[in-house]
Design a protein around this nucleic acid. Structure first.
Length: 572
RNA sequence: GCGCCCUUAGCUCAGUUGGAUAGAGCGUCGGACUACGAAUCCGAAGGCCAGAGGUUCAAAUCCUCUAGGGCGCGCCA
């Protein structure tokens, strides 16, 4: 567990404190906090001890600080706190060798070796519009998959298509009414028809009944209905593919609810046998005692067709049989938390020992989406707009001679998507965040392009300085900015681990900002003071040391961006 | 009506699971480039952490209530 430099120093401090206090390390560990920068790196408040020892916190802190002697740490009391500062030279040396020794991928570990995680993400409903809000499950799921892979997990990413259900009936029936034969193979056309059919069904019960009838025919295996279903599914999949490609997403599996149509009876039978089902108002339900007042789970409608809860139950079992997972994640909007509580509750009631390995990784809504003429904003529109805006910037930079690029279009794509992707992932996944077209496409401030820019500058420094030095004297890096930067670099693996543990990519996103801020500050010192330039003009040893630090920054930024699914161009 | 989640600077969000004077971006105002790349950096103004109680040595953080908002609640997914 204590594999990274920061972990080792933390543990050393905690165990020394534990010994001095005479308490178990576990209890002490929870008390050790990050310190305010001016006080060092780690802090231990003595208030809880004060009560037990009946002494004042400052006295205890002073006494403890006097007792502690830990290699690599400078321990000092400050009021009621015992603070530890990482011994600068050794710490800097440790950070540089750890990060540069690991290279891109720094922060990875093998803690997940032999373990399997199933991740259900993106999972669009076929024949429904792919709007901007699909971005969240897609990007969060992708980042989580990358994070688990980095810790050695076997990742089974599943794009679980909503390719079964009444909406197909709606589109099928809608095609007769609103379809344009010439546009039959177009995804946009399907969306068009779906939107119209959906609106029609709201007010026209006869139309709605037709759609239901069509879906029932699908379930019964009617060849004509199945042929149309198959065609619509193909059209949709073709329509999604370019979006996944530009985001760099590939799924291990593309499944669909349709996969389980012939397992419905078996699942219902098993539930009937283990949990018990009953009929209510013509429908088949399972009434769980798990929570008073919670609504029952519907397994089968009065007309005999099944519901998505039934299919999710079958899917969960299937995933267990296929992967014997240690965790099974469902990256789905929080709107559906009741649904997953029900599905997991049924699995538990069925006696599935793996039921508690299933986790609903929920995320909040994107508010205020109906900007621009009250229409749904399509995902590709946003990505295209981002690329177009980035292209303007790229052209400006090229015109002013700041960059040279052979492929401005490609760079614009990388930067534009970087802005959109980071704009989403920087938010904690559970917050409902407000969509603001201008903010998502913003390239100034702490954004995706800010990280990419910092990375490009680090790359450029290495280019100017003749590459990353093989050896460097860490003792020469004595500027406060350099120390602060080293701190941020050392915390990167800790943040990555936390991100995996809590399925929270924003931890990585926000930490990268901290790294880039410290790097930019350090870098800019050289504008005023040539002696503080990274590529020092006269002192070769200092230049090597600073280039080594820039190299470590480059590694952390590249690694973090890769985890988030954002490109890291070397020049921009 | 019942359940879940929110409310922190003008706006958008952090706040390491209870610890030191509450932080950042945008916006506003003022500075720094014939450049180790200004998509950058520095400074300033801006907060009764929705409100009221409570627990604690210590509360933005935990508990209760109130107000405001979002979402869900058997034949959609």
């Amino acid at each position: 567990m204590t594999q990274f430099l920061h972990d080792r120093l933390f543990e050393a401090f905690a165990s020394a404190l534990a010994a001095a206090v005479g308490q178990p390390v576990d209890a002490i560990r929870a008390q050790v906090k990050p310190a305010e920068p001016e006080h060092g790196d780690l802090a231990f408040p003595t208030f809880p001890l004060a009560k037990q020892l009946r002494k004042g916190p400052p006295a205890i802190a002073a006494e403890l600080a006097g007792k502690l002697s830990v290699p690599g740490l400078q321990v000092a009391a400050a009021g009621p706190y015992v603070n530890a500062r990482f011994e600068p030279r050794a710490f800097m040396d440790g950070v540089l060798s750890e990060a540069r020794g690991a290279g891109v991928g720094y922060g990875s570990s093998d803690t997940g070796r032999g373990k399997t995680v199933v991740i259900d993400y993106s999972s669009p409903n076929i024949a429904k519009p792919i709007a901007f809000h699909h971005l969240r499950t897609t990007l969060i799921g992708h980042a989580i998959a990358n994070l688990y892979r980095g810790q050695g997990w076997q990742v089974e990413g599943i794009n679980y298509l909503g390719d079964w259900g009444k909406q197909f009936g709606l589109v099928a029936v809608g095609l007769q009414e609103y379809g344009d034969p010439a546009r039959r193979g177009e995804m946009a056309h399907l969306v068009d028809v779906y939107v119209k059919a959906n609106a029609r069904a709201e007010t026209d019960p006869a139309f709605d009944a037709e759609a239901r009838a069509f879906f029932r025919k699908m379930e019964e295996g009617d060849p004509e209905a199945r042929a149309l279903w198959s065609e619509l599914r193909e059209t949709s999949l073709r329509g999604f593919q370019p979006t996944y490609e530009r985001l760099g997403i590939r799924f291990e599996h593309v499944d669909g609810e349709s996969l389980y149509e012939d397992r419905m009876d078996a699942v219902i039978e098993e539930i009937a046998r283990t949990v018990g089902v009953k009929e209510s108002e013509g429908a088949l339900i399972v009434d769980l005692p798990y929570a008073e007042g919670e609504p029952p789970v519907l397994l089968r409608k009065a007309d005999g067709s099944t519901l998505y809860a039934t299919r999710d139950l079958a899917a969960a079992e299937d995933r267990w049989e296929r992967f014997h997972f240690d965790r099974s994640l469902y990256v789905v909007a929080r709107d559906q938390s009741l649904h997953f509580a029900q599905v997991f509750g049924v699995l538990k009631a069925m006696g599935k020992p793996w039921a508690d390995r299933c986790v609903h990784v929920s995320f909040g809504r994107i508010m205020g989406m109906s900007t621009r003429a009250g229409r749904l904003v399509l995902l590709n529109q946003v990505l295209d707009e981002a690329r177009a805006r980035a292209l303007e910037k790229v052209k400006e930079s090229a015109a002013s001679g700041r960059i040279h690029t052979e492929e401005p279009e490609r760079l614009a794509e990388q930067v534009g998507l970087g802005a959109v992707v980071f704009g989403d992932l920087k938010n904690r996944r559970n917050t409902d965040y407000t969509f603001d077209w201008d903010e998502v496409l913003e390239f100034d401030g702490h954004t995706g392009p800010y990280l990419q820019y910092a990375h490009a500058r680090a790359c450029n420094l290495l280019k100017r300085g003749g590459g990353a030095p093989a050896r460097a004297d860490a003792g020469l890096l004595t500027l406060p900015e350099e120390q602060q930067l080293a701190r941020m670099l050392a915390r990167f693996p800790v943040q990555v681990r936390a991100a995996v543990e809590q399925d929270e990519p924003s931890f990585v996103a926000r930490h990268l900002i901290d790294v880039a801020v410290e790097f930019s500050r350090w870098y800019t010192l050289g504008n005023q003071d040539r002696d503080k330039r990274v590529v020092h003009e006269t002192d070769a040893a200092l230049r090597a040391a600073r280039l080594a630090l820039a190299d470590a920054v480059r590694i952390v930024l590249a690694t973090g961006l890769q985890l988030l699914g954002i490109a890291a161009p070397e020049s921009m």
